[in-house]
Every structure is written in structure tokens, then in C-alpha cells.
């Protein structure tokens, strides 16, 4: 398990290749990447991500441990950034490896659903009109029920 909470950008290709190289006997590797999306007509200038140092790492570890116990997966990589990000920058990535793809896909989806609502990050959007905190969506909370 490799959990990283960092301000710096990461290289998706480099991280995915490195993760793949560390696996043995795994037939499937899934990666997901979250990107700062430009808001239609809203002129997004920056996305500021705040987090709770200490709790963030522990919360992600707990989510990853749960995924490891539920599916037949080999390993998990989570990188999540904080600080000021610009549109089109990568916010975070998840990678899972498994002998077969169904486990790798499901574990990655599970990780994403829980990272969204159970890891202590808060996003603030800065637009030409000012700045505002992104509100949590009911759909994100509902997504946890399926697990």
C-alpha cells in the first residue's frame, strides 16, 4: 500500500509504470485520475484544496485496508494533492492491481467513492466572481450505500 498526500504535482505515466513494475502475478491494473475541471461559463481560475494533516493519511489508509480485505487485489496506490491547483491539473490518482480485472475495477471505484466523502479534503473554487467552497453532493453520500 502506497498512500501519498502532497502539494507537488505527480507524473501519471511515471507513477503508473512504477506501480506496475512493483506487481508480481497481477493480470490487471486499473488507474483513475481526477482532474480540475474548468466550469462551463464560470471562468475557474483555481481550485484550492484544504486537508487535515494526520487524519487525511489515516483515513485513506483505513479505506485502502477495507478495499484490500474486500477484494482479491494485490496492491493499492493513492496520491492526493492539496494546495492551489489550476484547471486541467491532476488532483489525485488511484491505482489498483489484481489477478483479474473485476476486482481491480471494483476496488478502484470503492476507493474513489470513499475518498470523495470520507477523506478530509475540502475544495474551494476561485472564479472571476470570487471564491466559494464546493458543497458535498447527496449523490456522493448515496454512492456509499452500494458498498
Amino acid at each position: 500500500m502506497d498512500i501519498r498526500v502532497q502539494e507537488e504535482a505527480f507524473d501519471l505515466g511515471h507513477e503508473a509504470r512504477g506501480f506496475a513494475a512493483r506487481q508480481a502475478g497481477m493480470g490487471a491494473l486499473v488507474t483513475f485520475t481526477g482532474i480540475v475541471r474548468d466550469l462551463e461559463g464560470d471562468d475557474l481560475k483555481a481550485m484550492e484544496i484544504e486537508h487535515y494533516p494526520g487524519m487525511t493519511e489515516r483515513a485513506i489508509e483505513k479505506i485502502a485496508e477495507e478495499a484490500l480485505s474486500r477484494w482479491n487485489i494485490g496492491d493499492i496506490l493513492v496520491i492526493h494533492r492539496y494546495g492551489a491547483l489550476e484547471p486541467d491539473e491532476m488532483i489525485m490518482m488511484v491505482a489498483t492491481s489484481a489477478p483479474h480485472r473485476a476486482d481491480a475495477f471494483q476496488a478502484a471505484e470503492f476507493l474513489m467513492d470513499f475518498l470523495k466523502s470520507r477523506a478530509p479534503f475540502w475544495k474551494k473554487e476561485v472564479t472571476g466572481d470570487g471564491a466559494g467552497w464546493v458543497a458535498a453532493k447527496d449523490a456522493d453520500e448515496d454512492a456509499l450505500d452500494r458498498w
Binding site: 466523502s117 479534503f121 475540502w122 475544495k123
Partner: peptide
């Protein structure tokens, strides 16, 4: 003890 709004990670 920490207080915060619902989280918006990912």
C-alpha cells in the same frame, strides 16, 4: 477535536 463541513475529496 475538529469541526468541518462534509468532505469533498477525490
Amino acid at each position: 477535536v475538529a469541526f468541518f463541513p462534509p468532505m469533498t475529496g477525490g
